[in-house]
Nucleic acid binder design. Structure first.
Ligand SMILES: [Mn+2]
Ligand SMILES: [Mn+2]
Ligand SMILES: [Mn+2]
Ligand SMILES: [Mn+2]
Lengths: 227, 227
DNA sequence: AAAATAAGTTAGGTTAGCCTAAAAAACTGT
DNA sequence: ACAGTTTTTTAGGCTAACCTAACTTATTTT
């Protein structure tokens, strides 16, 4: 058990969250200085600066020239921020009727509000949701994060029926594109044909007219085989 | 009309809000360096620093050794922050069931979230409330702030029946004290007797047993004569 | 009208969080 | 293994937002 004495700035929280998400997409290999620099829109030198401070505060494991990873305190913090981010996204969609491509930027600010009680009550108010509007799992109050085993639609590479569970890209442009294709979380995607040259798919969403998904799209759609 | 080009930091927003509220309690006489220093828990020298920066940004009218006031841009900004603060307080009470002495600190952070669309939708979600949990009026979307003509109960100094409309002090301790007295916004306060020596009041709240209010309390209760 | 006190400003210093440019270390390809 | 490239760190600087201590201006008291 560890009690956090120093308090953590908004900037530090953003670094911690970035390390967490880069580490996850790297399958636990940690985050490099350049990856952080890219994600946070800072120069590499600034990142090194901050890594030293985070190491000082025991939030990360840092060795020069090696990629960094979160300490257990850092991970706890990161999961708390992710939980807040995703809960606020649900609030913005479900209660304030924002679209799924509008919620991220606002949640990026709301995730830093510091009140444990607030998070508990928001969670209860929303009915303890398990997934955010993009299909990402919401860590529970104990910091447990359930990882769904969805995979990119392109990964299956075969005719069949799938359930759309989440997105592997969160850009406004991509989300708006999916909306214009008529695709929402939970939809059924039936793959009718696969083009051997460009790997584009002929699909049917629910019971609609068939249409085509480029591989650029299908590789960003997280699905599972429909049961 | 004025478009705000530079963006305003959280710290600057807190200064602007402080100037606004001190100015209001001074009946438009502006805010002094020392009053700001007190309210913001900064030293006077730091306040002077910031006043120069705010003047640079045309948010205040500042002349050395004189008390400062908000420019029209500054006032617009201040009212926007107050609006957000009070709307979030309503949200915390009405939707998340916080108590009226718990909402202020959290709203102090939430008031800085920057999204006009968010404020509009939150307002609609809450049913366009006109008052916050402490009886303070909520500015409308156009920045118009209705000022109720409630006065401290002690001010009337006569037997009669009053409606409790708001508090002139927002400290946790005072709010909790009122709760323990069984007093809520909207309650009827019947003044049965006034002590000539200490100006304490014998009162009845709604139809309850009679009790006493010290002047320390009655001077902080904003009421109007019951119609 | 001085003297005393209070209020406000200035000067110089600190820290967080950024920057650029140069140096050092770690990889990569042959 | 070593030359070239990429990645990371270091060194030196900057600004916002604070501080303290000294100084200046304004106000109050006698
Ligand atoms: Mn953020
Ligand atoms: Mn999301
Ligand atoms: Mn605030
Ligand atoms: Mn209030």
């Amino acid at each position: 058990m560890y009690i956090c004495i120093v308090d953590i700035s908004l900037t530090e929280e953003n670094y911690i969250k970035a390390i967490f998400s880069i580490n996850a997409s790297n399958k636990g290999e940690g985050a490099s200085t350049n990856e952080l620099s890219e994600q946070l829109n800072n120069k590499a030198g600034s990142v090194t600066d901050m890594l030293k401070r985070l190491a000082e505060k025991k939030l990360i494991h840092y060795q020069k020239y090696k990629s960094v990873s979160l300490s257990s305190a850092g991970e706890k913090l990161a999961i708390g921020i992710v939980r807040k981010h995703r809960l606020w996204e649900v609030f913005l969609m479900e209660k304030l009727h924002f679209k799924w491509d509008e919620v991220h930027d606002i949640a990026e600010e709301l995730e830093h509000i510091k009140s444990d009680e607030l998070v508990l009550r928001l969670d209860a108010f929303l009915g303890k949701p398990r997934f955010d509007p993009h299909g990402d799992p919401i860590p529970d109050a104990k910091g447990h994060l359930f990882l769904p085993h969805a995979k990119p639609l392109s990964h299956f590479a075969r005719i069949g029926t799938y359930t759309f569970l989440g997105v592997a890209e969160h850009s406004k442009l991509f989300l708006q594109h999916l909306t214009s294709l008529g695709l929402k979380i939970g939809d059924t995607i039936k793959v009718l044909d696969i083009n051997a040259f460009d790997h584009s798919l002929m699909v049917k969403i629910n019971r609609n007219e068939h249409q085509f998904f480029s591989e650029a799209v299908s590789s960003k759609l997280l699905v599972d085989i429909k049961k």
